[in-house]
């Protein structure tokens, strides 16, 4: 097997790479360039566009001065956003700037589109309330008090954080939806990539196609895939949020399939599970997948961070 072939198509061909090239080559792009609009690049048009931009900036600055009253002399880093009517999606609305401490509140007739510095976007649904807590090179932090937002972030892990009353969603890259109901309870649904949902030192790992519920008074629940059975979901709610848990852990373990090893892996870190209970969880994991040779059962049950990560990598093939 030659890495050189994978790198630059020199060296001895790797049969598997060659085979994939042939099979996947069917989807290769070979389209011509699109027609270039005839107006593009014309000096007159460009001047007009530049003038419009300058006028727009002037109007925006004036508008903000009125809107916000006295502002600090030193410009603060801010995010551009726009309130968009739900009914017609008209995106010609005035562009605004959100700075640290500002809130956005949408009613039933509007949503908001935000640009998250240079790392992504947030779409805020109607009837939502959101605050920019801070924005900077080391962290961008929002607080979703109520409603629903969808975030697309393509940035180093942990650079983008959204607080909710029930826990903080810490972005590890990609696309997710976060909801907070009137009672402050949360729901995190990850579409692409992965997110950590955290509170009080407990971190729930939520990868693509998984979700995690949270309660304001109890914190995060245990993540599960969208494909999880109703029985598993019900048992998890009893385990995570129920007053009388009864046989909830047994029911969870019983309901898990190989794909639900995501749930089992997260349970290994569950704050309410003692070592014996974690042992039962690990038994179930091992029924699906033997522990890799380099990992020991004791290290898993002791919640050794490196060991848990290695186990997650091994189980990730099923997710």
């Amino acid at each position: 097997m030659s890495d050189e072939y994978l790198w630059d198509k020199t060296g001895a061909p790797d049969p598997e790479v060659e085979h994939l090239e042939r099979v996947l080559g069917e989807a290769r792009f070979d389209g011509p360039p699109p027609e270039m609009p005839v107006t593009s690049g014309r000096p007159g048009l460009r001047f007009a566009v530049a003038a419009a931009v300058l006028i727009g900036i002037g109007a925006l600055t004036f508008g903000l001065a009125i809107d916000r009253g006295a502002r600090p002399e030193t410009p603060q880093p801010g995010w551009a956003y726009m309130l968009v009517p739900v009914e017609n999606g008209d995106r010609t609305a005035e562009a605004r700037t959100l700075v640290a401490g500002d809130w956005i509140e949408t009613d039933a007739t509007t949503r908001a589109d935000l640009t998250v510095a240079d790392i992504g976007r947030v779409d805020l649904d109607p009837d939502s309330r959101l605050q920019l807590v801070r924005t900077g090179d080391d962290e961008h932090r929002l607080r979703l008090e109520r409603g629903r937002m969808q975030a697309l972030v393509d940035a180093p892990p942990r650079l983008f954080v959204t607080e909710t009353p029930a826990g903080d969603a810490v972005d590890l890259g990609c696309l997710y939806t976060l909801e907070v109901d009137e009672a402050g309870n949360g729901l995190l649904v990850v579409e692409v990539g992965m997110v950590m949902y955290e509170r009080g030192g407990y971190e729930a790992f939520v990868p693509a196609k998984a979700r995690c519920e949270a309660r304001k008074d109890k914190g995060m629940g245990t993540p599960y895939f969208e494909t999880a059975s109703g029985a598993l979901r019900a048992a998890l709610r009893r385990l995570d949020f129920g007053d009388a848990q009864g046989n909830a852990l047994s029911d969870v373990i019983e309901a898990c399939t190989v794909r639900d090893t995501l749930t089992l892996w997260n349970l290994l870190q569950h704050p309410a599970l003692d070592q014996a209970a974690r042992g039962r969880v690990l038994d179930r994991i091992e029924a699906f997948k033997e522990l890799p040779d380099e990992l020991t059962r004791d290290a898993v049950l002791d919640r050794d961070a490196e060991t848990l990560l290695s186990l997650r990598d091994a189980l990730g093939l099923y997710w």
């Binding site: 992965m194 961070a305 990560l309």
Partner: peptide, 14 residues
């Protein structure tokens, strides 16, 4: 150090 803190570089390369 948290599990995730150690995993950041491994999972979402910029």
């Amino acid at each position: 150090m948290s599990v995730d803190a150690r995993s950041t570089a491994r999972h979402c390369p910029r």
